[in-house]
Design a binder for these strands. Structure first.
Lengths: 134, 134
DNA sequence: ATAACAGTGTAATAATATAACAAATATTGT
DNA sequence: ACAATATTTGTTATATTATTACACTGTTAT
């Protein structure tokens, strides 16, 4: 009796594969347009797949952009600690993999002594290329 | 010659005062319904005020909720380093004021040596009250 | 076999946010 | 005070993002 889903359903596979092929985060409706040839016709089908893929940690949502990106971090099977670098100029997004940072945040206690199960961190700045160009 | 706006316009004041009075984050359209008696009729008027208020650091956007909360942190006149605690159960949101955390994140360098001007961090868990109830 | 569960398909609609344009108001430099 | 510049406002329309509701299909566990 498997506790966690071990396979992806058809729609989940289709949506994941589009996101994995993409260079950057994709928006839900742009995913939809990309998969209409493959039989996914309605927003809800996309959103359902996205929800599941997030739940099992295959993708992450970039909240400040309402966009979805494949998880590059083999560790996070359940997506609970995410950090991203976002370029204000070219909009390039990269997942930050930094064990010191993730340890620091996972163990963080606020002033009341509370600890958290989950966090999402988004950093903004200029990426290397954009900094050079300016 | 003031470089920064030193006052708030009428609509900005109205919107800010609603947000400051609220117990938690408010959504844009809920703000709209609340201020229709005061002459603000259209979403855009609310969004424009929100944009300005964010820019000058009077409020913050909780990205995972598409909601807006007053800044309790007198330091952040320009909103560039924000951290929040969000309860998964009662949805209570609190701005985290922790100088160690903010120093850590403001000085954070990623693996490529890049530093960032701005960040937003959202922590999720159960708040004290909800933890006790369960 | 059947209950429980996860996934699918479809239509409709809700919720969030922006574009485009015209006019009014405030601010600054001279 | 006056023109030039900035910002803010008002309004309509529309774009974008996300969910509700309902009927149906397939798989798994007992």
């Amino acid at each position: 009796m498997p506790q966690k889903q071990e396979y992806l359903s058809k729609n989940q596979q289709i949506v994941l594969s589009i996101i994995e092929k993409a260079k950057g985060p994709l928006k839900a409706y742009s995913i939809l347009y990309n998969v209409q040839k493959k039989g996914i016709k309605a927003p809800l089908q996309v959103y359902r797949a996205l929800e599941k893929l997030i739940e099992i940690g295959k993708i992450h949502k970039i909240e400040s952009k309402n966009a979805f990106i494949a998880c590059k971090n083999s560790d996070c099977e359940i997506s609970k600690a995410t950090a991203f670098s976002i370029c204000n100029n070219c909009e390039h997004v990269k997942e930050i993999k930094n064990s010191k940072l993730s340890k620091y945040l996972s163990n963080f206690e606020d002033n009341s002594g509370m600890k958290y199960k989950k966090y999402n961190l988004e950093f903004f700045g200029l990426c290397r290329d954009c900094k050079l160009k300016q």
